[in-house]
Design a protein around this nucleic acid. Structure first.
Lengths: 216, 216
DNA sequence: TAGATTGTTAATCGATTAACAATC
DNA sequence: TAGATTGTTAATCGATTAACAATC
């Protein structure tokens, strides 16, 4: 029963997929899944599934597979998804507003605790029942709220100062939608979601682009 | 001067970053960048930069580096970013509406040509000046519009039939925001952006979660 | 020319897949 | 028990980094 030190990051990403898959299987009334069953549902190689799980313990029974409910519970606990997690959004523009209203957030066990902006024409207004707060008040307010997950939905130019403010306020992990990298202390984890980059990558794969530029 | 057959996908993702970096450098009036300069601006190892570029040609001069404008133009062409690309959105919910209003789309050279939904209470209404269209009309309408990039912003349950409809309508690449995989013909490329998965991955990295569950 | 930097090859690193003894 | 499937080790694969001859 190995203790997890550092499972590879791709393993953690797949763990989230397993949790979702197991929850769905539970709803369907399925009580046991083999790694081959999980492969059928997720497309993730069955050996990969077993390898991923082995970073965290021995959850299966040879010849039988994995009991859905206990595995779900243990993985959810490992991922800290066994409790409601609170998040805050900085940037009450299009993306921030959409995210605030995104039902998947709640369905996945997240609660939006606050939304901040620096624009006085926005501060004080409400988005889906939540008042837009002055970003200057974040350190003070978050001393009480204790939110540790921050979401940046500002323009690129504001991302770095916002990240600094989040760190100052006690946030430990950041989901950054601004199309720029932000620098943080080493113990603060940042994941970047760059929508236009995703579209640009797809453009490359448009049929004709598979040729070299010279060959076009 | 090697012809590109298949550069690794991570290379393509970085290419998009180089394009953005070069455009910015141009605005700043910088005329030349070495691979070390690009590393300083992007955090991408200078050897990696040279390797990535070498998949597509020889763009630099030993001892001097890369001329910003020509490299920008050539990479933009390779990525098909030298022309306006049209996209369509399916799903006029929170995410679809936000994306439709996202200024970064236009700033990155994309034009939103259409937005579809299957909900009769939404069809006919306008989002940011664009009429919400009946998804049933997509194959017909797109025969004229010729949009090849589709964006799925529906609930998970609708994602697969929507993907099928997109493929039927001539779309070749898909950006999928629904938290589920979609199956497509092999020549249709899908990229998945799963916002709640990103948050769940971050949860794992919250300080206390670095221990194994047993050790907590 | 001398110094700088490319393009590319070789070495390293890390993650995925295959294979199989252990075991339910 | 016999068949099925785990957990893990070894083999493979692919991407990143280091190093350096070529050359501006």
């Amino acid at each position: 029963m190995p203790i997890n030190r550092t499972a590879p990051e791709p393993t953690i990403a797949r763990l989230a997929i397993y949790v979702r898959t197991l929850r769905l299987a539970r709803v369907e009334g399925v009580e046991t899944l083999s790694s081959a069953d999980i492969e059928a549902r997720t497309g993730i190689n069955s050996g990969q599934v077993r390898k991923d799980l082995s970073y965290f313990g021995e959850f299966g029974k040879p010849g039988l597979g994995y009991a859905v409910l206990p595995l779900y519970q243990r993985l959810a606990r490992i991922m800290r998804l066994d409790r409601e997690q609170t998040v805050m959004i900085v940037g009450a523009g299009n993306m921030g507003t959409a995210l605030a209203g995104y039902s998947g957030l709640h369905e996945s066990g997240f609660r939006l605790a606050a939304i901040y902006d620096n624009n006085f024409s926005k501060i004080g207004w409400r988005i889906w029942d939540l008042e837009i707060l002055d970003i200057e008040r974040m350190p003070d307010l978050n001393a009480t709220m204790g939110v540790r997950i921050g979401i940046i939905t500002t323009p690129a130019t504001a991302a770095q100062p916002v990240a600094d403010q989040l760190v100052r306020s006690g946030v430990r992990v950041i989901l950054n939608f601004a199309p720029t990298r932000v620098a943080t202390p080493r113990d603060v984890i940042v994941r970047n979601v760059d929508l236009t980059q995703e579209l640009q990558i797809l453009c490359f794969y448009l049929p004709e682009s598979l040729l070299s530029e010279d060959a076009v």
